[in-house]
Amino acid sequence: MRFLFTFVGGRGHFDPLAPVARAAAARGHTVAVSGGGRHVAGIDRAGFTVIPTTPPPVAEAPARREPMPPVDPARDDWEIKELFATRGARTRAEKLLEIIHD
């Protein structure tokens, strides 16, 4: 079986799916991971076939960890709806359909 794991977001979205993808690969399945261009190197370092959904950034900015903002349910709802379900889905859907067809 062939699996395509994909995510919108950063390492906090990729890291939880990586063990599931590794388990599928360990069972003999073909596994690829698709994420935004700035995550290609990290996905590759994790040992997966990488299929970018967006181009890599022109210049790689150094990784910066910032503290989590305070809990704000209204902001969280907006981010999920606007950034992930709307913008993220729209910008990646066409590319994901191409990947699936290939």
Rank of each mutant, 00 (worst) to 15 (best):
M1S: 13
L4M: 00
L4W: 08
L4C: 00
F5N: 09
F7T: 05
F7D: 06
V8G: 01
G10M: 03
G10Q: 04
G10N: 11
F14V: 00
D15F: 03
D15V: 03
P16V: 01
L17M: 15
L17F: 05
L17W: 03
V20K: 11
V20N: 02
A21G: 10
A23V: 00
A24T: 09
A25K: 12
A25L: 04
A26K: 11
A26C: 02
R27H: 07
R27I: 03
H29F: 08
T30A: 15
A32P: 00
A32N: 01
S34Q: 01
G35I: 02
G35K: 00
G36I: 04
R38I: 03
A41S: 08
I43Q: 01
I43Y: 07
R45V: 10
R45I: 01
R45D: 15
A46P: 07
F48R: 09
I51H: 03
I51F: 02
T53C: 10
T54F: 01
T54L: 15
T54N: 07
P56C: 03
P57R: 02
R64W: 08
R64F: 08
P67I: 02
M68F: 00
P70M: 09
D72W: 05
D72Q: 00
P73Q: 04
P73A: 03
A74C: 03
A74Q: 11
R75K: 14
D76W: 12
W78P: 05
E79V: 15
I80L: 14
I80Q: 11
I80E: 07
E82G: 01
E82A: 13
L83M: 13
A85W: 09
G88P: 06
G88R: 01
G88Q: 06
A89C: 10
A89F: 14
R90H: 12
R90M: 10
T91N: 12
L96I: 15
L97G: 09
E98F: 02
E98Q: 14
E98L: 10
E98A: 13
I99P: 09
H101G: 11
H101D: 14
D102I: 01
D102C: 09
D102F: 07
